Amino acid sequence: MTDVAKIKKTAAEWQEQLTAEQFHVLRQSGTERPFTGPYCNSFDHGRYDCAGCGQPLFLSDTKFDAGCGWPSFFKAVAPEAITEIEDATLGMVRTEIRCSKCDGHLGHVFPDGPPPTGLRYCLNGHAMTFTHET
């Protein structure tokens, strides 16, 4: 994965394509309540893709139970899949993560994950779809 072709759509086009929950998270930078979104407790073998554009984001073998209420991963499928942005909202400084292809809000990344990266990509379940692999 190298050059990522950007997807641009109007808000109306995104609303037609996405569920209300997906639109809130991906296009309005919303956050689902902890332990309420899909994939939080799922550890099936497969791949997690962006719900907005289908770009591969994370593999199941990098998913771990962080106990935080959101699906967590220690490594993206490729560095180019994720865009990191400083987020200074809510009285704190965090690193927001977005899909590099459609600019959909995915969640945040924190430096408190397990080896080998020490990172915890904390995602909204509604920002992703899952493809089972056998």
Rank of each mutant, 00 (worst) to 15 (best):
V4H: 01
F43K: 05
V77H: 08
F74S: 09
D112G: 05
T83N: 07
T36F: 04
A81S: 15
T117A: 03
D87E: 07
F73A: 01
S72Q: 02
T89W: 06
T2V: 10
R98W: 06
E133R: 15
A51T: 02
S42P: 02
G52W: 10
G125Q: 07
T134K: 12
A5Y: 04
E21Q: 14
M128I: 07
F130D: 08
Q55C: 06
C99T: 01
F73P: 09
F23Y: 15
T117S: 13
F58Q: 03
S29V: 09
R47V: 14
G107W: 14
W70F: 10
K9C: 02
E84Y: 08
V77R: 00
P34L: 08
A51K: 05
I82R: 02
L119S: 08
L18T: 00
E84C: 05
D65E: 15
A51I: 01
G118E: 12
T10F: 11
E32L: 11
H105I: 01
D49Y: 05
L90C: 09
S100Q: 12
C122E: 13
Y121S: 06
R120L: 06
K63H: 06
N41G: 15
C122F: 02
P71Y: 14
G113I: 08
P114C: 12
L90Y: 14
T83P: 00
K6F: 09
A127M: 04
T83E: 11
P116Q: 04
